[in-house]
Amino acid sequence: MSTFTPALSWDLSTAYDLFVSLFVLHHPDRFGLRPSWAAGVRSRLPPGQREFLEKAQSFLPVPLRWLYLLPAGARDAADAVSALAKIPTAERLATLSHTSEHTPEFTATLRSLSSRQSWTPAELEVIRTFYQRRGIPLKPTALLNLCQAWAHPAEFGDQYLEALQSYYRLFFTEEEQRIRPLLISGIERARELALHRSIEHLLDALSHGVHFSGLHSYREVILAPSVWSTPLVFYSPIDPARLFILFGCRPTDQPLTPSASAPEPLVLRLKALADPSRLAILRRLAESPTTPGELARHLRLRSPTVVHHLQLLRLAGLVEITLLPSGERRYALRREALQETLPALEAYLQVPISHPPSPEDPH
């Protein structure tokens, strides 16, 4: 029986990085970003808006589906901000949060919160379980922030728009000009790769080791580049027939923070390897691919601890991940990345250091 291959299409917009950058700045540890630098960017916002965004970004996803469905030719960052302003205030939270993966029970629970402006322990459990099954468990404070937002959606919609407008004005307008050429060159490189690779091998290369096991159930796969998501990917079904994937396109020699000196991939790999628990995880993955739950049982670690270590190993490119249709994630060792680490370190150590000229002898 022949296997259906989905059609491949492309998208390019700075609006994706507007929202991804907000996500990264509020979760810097997930992306290998210095927390102090991220806090410095966030400090450009007025204190009230900064505190609001810290709560909002503890549970808000990147609204990939909404951004992709904006009118063609009007999906850059400024267009997205304007489009959000046109949405009725009380509907902005639902717009930003919606994905095709929402279950009827989850959607009904959120609507109940909004109508009663309160929640029950049973409803908290429905929300917690939904995120747990998707592999993105919420911390207790994030769960509370989410419930408070849905209990007062109009108030949230007003505050979020004001904070987003400030963020765009005070930081992202300048950042947009910096990243636009990188997005263009990134999509050009990806298109070139697509000429010579199957869609599976293309996604593996662009995502640094993410495998979508249900890929052939989609009619179309849409790919778009992102500077801020590098080296990770964001993805979301647009509908049952279309899958959207935002891939990192930032070159390895161009760090996100201007003060970085050593090669970013090398630093991430060395940090990831400098931990006994992560070495134990890699040793287990060297035997066979497995899930976070299985790793937790074998290594006698708490599941959240294992997930944290796997995130750092994934960020360093040392493990690959298969996303199963059930939502389960299976990890495996990326041997090629491990084998590249020592040569990369040796190459870095051999780069000549530019010394400043010696001051002239005053005599």
Rank of each mutant, 00 (worst) to 15 (best):
L301W: 06
S13A: 15
A85I: 02
S277N: 10
R42Y: 05
A85D: 03
W66L: 08
A205R: 09
S259I: 08
A332P: 01
F212M: 02
C147N: 08
D253T: 06
Y348A: 15
A83Q: 11
A163C: 11
R242L: 05
F156E: 04
S198M: 06
Q159I: 01
L110G: 12
P35T: 07
K55Y: 06
R116P: 04
L324G: 06
A15F: 05
G73W: 10
L202A: 05
A151P: 12
H309E: 06
T257G: 13
Q339F: 12
G40M: 04
E174T: 09
A38C: 08
A337K: 10
Y168Q: 07
E51Q: 14
T3K: 10
A332E: 08
I179H: 09
D76Q: 12
L110S: 04
L25W: 09
L345H: 05
P357K: 08
S198F: 03
Q49F: 01
A94E: 07
L18K: 05
W119D: 03
E175S: 08
R116S: 03
S21L: 07
L138I: 02
E192N: 09
C147S: 14
A316R: 00
R133D: 04
V307E: 08
P240I: 01
I222W: 04
E155R: 15
M1Y: 10
S213L: 11
S217I: 03
F31R: 03
E176P: 04
Q311Y: 06
K86H: 13
L299P: 00
Y348L: 11
M1K: 10
V126A: 01
H201E: 14
P359L: 12
P35D: 09
R30L: 13
V351C: 00
P357A: 13
I245C: 13
A262L: 10
W37D: 06
Y235C: 07
